[in-house]
């Protein structure tokens, strides 16, 4: 398949902002136009090919190699195509994304999929803070799509999210699902404190025990049928979500009473 390959050849000394690295932008552009795309190295306007070797043209399939920790806004607001990164990547990966797929074979910075609407992001390593979150002052975070993080994630995972799904394979830090309004967060490796704080609606599923806020009330033990559907869906994404009664059951908590909200947190209790 026709593909555009970018290889980092010069490490940026300060932040490099590259919202042009997006399938939508590259799709109709020639090799020369892609090379000449404007990126911002700190405050200075530079050509993309000052930092990257560019191979290919006119494609919505992008492959990037190199340590991109200082490279921000990759795949911003993309609506289609694929971006595959071999290496670490900086902040705002796939922020405001509205379709397409991003895959990172490495770690990602903060704000992965910030306020995203559609599409899929898969981070094989760790992610930073505010995965799928709302930017400061916004009332609504992620409104759709899927974010998978195989490793750990920082604070405020899914802050103010309304729809969509976030799966954290490792552990999340504080305030996962903060002020959540809907959607689903799956925490395979549990989380630190204040999970689901101030949530209004939505579901947080944890496969490890959680230290909950005092404003969540226990409301039963069960194996909800919808998890059956979730589990099948997650299986296609490579995530195992237990649901069979022989394996265990979910303890359900509702809250946050402080709001007061109607969110739910399900904590898996394996059968002994």
């Amino acid at each position: 398949m026709n593909k555009i390959k970018l290889t980092l050849k010069k490490n940026p000394t300060v932040v490099l902002e590259t919202e042009v690295i997006s399938p939508d932008y590259f799709l109709e552009r020639t090799h020369e136009e892609i090379c000449a795309s404007v990126v911002y190295h700190g405050k200075r306007e530079k050509r993309l090919d000052e930092f990257f070797d560019v191979d290919g043209e006119r494609s919505d399939c992008i492959e990037i190699h190199g340590d991109l920790q200082r490279v921000r806004h990759v795949g911003r607001a993309m609506t289609r195509g694929e971006v595959t990164i071999h290496g670490d990547v900086g902040m705002h990966l796939g922020a405001l994304m509205n379709g397409g797929v991003i895959e990172v074979h490495g770690n990602a910075g903060d704000w992965v999929g910030g306020e995203m609407k559609r599409g899929k992001i898969h981070i094989h390593g760790d992610a930073g803070q505010q995965v799928g979150a709302a930017y400061r002052g916004s009332i609504i975070g992620m409104t759709g799509g899927t974010i998978l993080v195989d490793g750990n994630a920082g604070i405020e995972v899914g802050m103010r999210m309304r729809r969509g799904m976030i799966v954290i394979g490792g552990a999340a830090r504080d305030f996962a699902g903060l002020q959540m309004k809907g959607g689903t967060i799956v925490l395979c490796g549990g989380a630190e404190i204040r999970t689901g704080a101030w949530m209004q609606r939505g579901t947080i599923i944890s496969l490890k025990n959680l230290a909950l806020m005092p404003t969540f009330a226990e409301s039963g033990v069960y194996n909800p049928t919808f998890l059956n559907v979730y589990s099948r869906h997650l299986k296609t994404l490579g995530v195992q979500l237990p649901f069979a009664e022989v394996d265990g059951r979910y303890r359900r908590y509702s809250g946050d009473q402080g709001v007061p909200g109607k969110g739910e947190i399900l904590i898996w209790e394996p059968a002994v």
Binding site: W198, P214, T215, G258
Partner: peptide, 25 residues
């Protein structure tokens, strides 16, 4: 502190809060 304030937010709105919920503060 955050837990305590959130409990207070619940209590001013007459949400049922028990002794056990308050204990950790």
């Amino acid at each position: 502190d955050f837990e305590l304030i959130t409990l207070l937010r619940a209590m001013i709105k007459d949400q049922p809060i028990s002794e056990a919920q308050v204990a950790e503060t």
